[in-house]
């Protein structure tokens, strides 16, 4: 009797898992093997959509941009976030104020982030204009309108949004490091920077792994920030896979092509998340 109440309570979850978290994925993967355009067509077309996808220069540019963004964004957030966490952990004054300043961008949306940085980096109104106004007439910082450099401005905005988040996670990790370890280091007269590099960093490996997985999924999903900052431009130089899917779904009316692109995104996330999740569940089961 009581058990059926619990089952009843979980019914919405069961339905959503089956319909959305399993059903929708299966449907999308399935549709990627069909020639569907405006409406779903249920006939098998093999790998045609994938061939078209990887022949499309826009998709190749999107994938390249995603790789550049992922490396810059994840690397930037981890390095800057870790440095900020270490430096804040040196018993500095105004710790709370600094933490508040480092983390507030994370409370804002990627749309807001993109629009602010678009304004800051605008060559005619932003930082370039400011420096030129100071007298350095030849100063140039116009990446946002340079097709080859525009993606790096999105990296800057992304790091601005995410580094404080990594700082918060790592600072909590640093505060959790056993005081005995520091004592041992002092007794052996090991310099502090070596302690951080060779002792503390390996201890924090799980926190780094968690942060990296989260940032990677953000990087693969990134859409809002590009739409707000460059709309994929100049030209198609800052297109990303998530935007490719959206455009083919809602503007170009090619469901099959969008599904193939979404499936590739799915596989990329799986390739990143699966090893970490596996390693973690393995560690858990070993601990008992």
């Amino acid at each position: 009797m009581k058990l059926s109440q619990a089952r009843l309570a979980l019914l919405p979850m069961f339905v959503i898992v089956v319909v959305v978290y399993v059903g929708a994925i299966v449907w999308t993967v399935g549709i990627s093997f069909t020639p569907s355009r405006m409406l779903p067509v249920y006939e098998f077309a093999g790998l045609d959509q994938y061939r078209a996808l990887f022949r499309s220069s826009r998709w190749i540019i999107s994938m390249t941009n995603m790789a550049i963004f992922a490396v810059g964004y994840i690397g930037g957030c981890l390095v800057l976030g870790y440095l900020m966490a270490i430096f804040i952990d040196q018993k500095v004054r105004a710790e709370n104020t600094l933490r508040t300043i480092f983390l507030y961008p994370h409370a804002m949306s990627f749309i807001v982030t993109g629009l602010v940085w678009n304004w800051m980096l605008s060559p005619t109104e932003g930082i370039q204009d400011f420096v030129r106004g100071l007298g350095w007439q030849s100063f140039t910082f116009d990446w946002i309108v340079q097709p080859r450099m525009a993606i790096y401005t999105i990296v800057i905005a992304g790091v601005w949004h995410g580094a404080g988040f990594v700082m918060a996670l790592l600072l909590a990790g640093l505060r959790g490091v056993d005081e005995e370890i520091w004592k041992a280091g002092r007794i052996d007269a090991i310099p502090r920077w070596r302690m951080y590099l060779h002792v503390v960093t390996p201890i924090l490996a799980p926190v780094f792994a968690t942060s990296a997985v989260l940032l990677t999924t953000h990087a693969i999903k990134s859409y809002d920030i590009v739409v707000a900052m460059t709309q994929g431009g100049p030209g198609i130089s800052t297109e990303v896979p998530a935007k490719y899917v959206m455009d083919y779904l809602f503007e170009r009316g090619s469901i099959g092509q969008a599904a193939a692109a979404a499936t590739v995104m799915l596989m990329m996330v799986a390739a990143v998340a699966a090893p970490v999740l596996y390693a973690r569940s393995f560690a858990k089961s070993r601990r008992g």
């Binding site: 693969i220 899917v245 799915l266």
Partner: peptide, 8 residues
């Protein structure tokens, strides 16, 4: 990614 779910 949401892109996998949205169309269904």
């Amino acid at each position: 990614p949401y892109q996998v779910y949205v169309f269904p």
